[in-house]
Amino acid sequence: MPLSLIAEQLLNGLQLGLMLFLLAAGLTLVFGIMDMINLAHGSLYMVGAYLAAAVTEASGSFWLGLLGATVATAAVGAALEVSLLRRLYARSHLSQVLATFAVILIANEIVRMIWGSQPILLNPPPALAGPVQVGSVRYPAYRLVVIGVGLALALLLWLLVSRTRAGMRVRAGASDRTMAEALGVDIRTLFTAVFALGAALSAVAGALLGPLLAVQVGMGENILILAFVVITIGGIGSIRGALLGSLLVGLLDTAGRAFLPFLFRKMFPAAVAAEAGPAMAAMSIYMLMVAVLYFRPAGLFPARG
């Protein structure tokens, strides 16, 4: 197998991992701080992608689309928190599952009513349409930009959480909610802010992945499950864990799909390899999660002591 192919797959894995992180960051904070299972997080990702496509179409600029979608989705997230989710924090996880599942159904139908059932088009900026030469690899320029934005946001989020007062409050809330309240943190406002931030990050992921995957109803559900896998592996409530989990899952998924069938062809007859290869690749993420949880039930970086 040529080295350039391996390098290309590593970049793909990095890109998927970083986008997963944008989704997982908000999910893990909401789960860790508010003890809230939010299945509708994937819907915010979908809304972000659709809004990006709409604004891009209207303005002719992808970057305006990205910005508009981020701001608008943050507002949608904040509105959702204030109007509905706030009532659910004190309820059982089961009630939260049912309510946010209902939100998924509603969001999907509203999007379907506005944009229809067919996938819609979101094109990358024309300037980034072609490939560029990175060392010995020709790699799509747009994907490189996605990686760049992902890295920048991950760094920014890390600085925000570890180096600012607001971040300190968030961490205090994630490890001990009662303690944070005792310290005078305004929990209600903090929750809304965290939720809006999580919504904005998933919108960025939706907008950036839009040109690479299809922008369609239901796009949020499967990536949501991956994001849950990520935060469970990383340790619920931990940003560091979410980043590590995202990169692990992103790389494993990409590498599995690219290399496992290849590997199996060497070890087994072609017919067996054709069947087992893709299966093992898709299963590898879940095997990773089971292995991690079996030995570390609270994940790699538990936020709570």
Binding site: L98, A99, A102, V103
Partner: peptide, 13 residues
């Protein structure tokens, strides 16, 4: 699904 969603939400609340 919109109707189902509203129904489920009403039941949770």
């Amino acid at each position: 699904p919109l109707g189902i969603g509203v129904l489920l939400l009403a039941i949770v609340l």
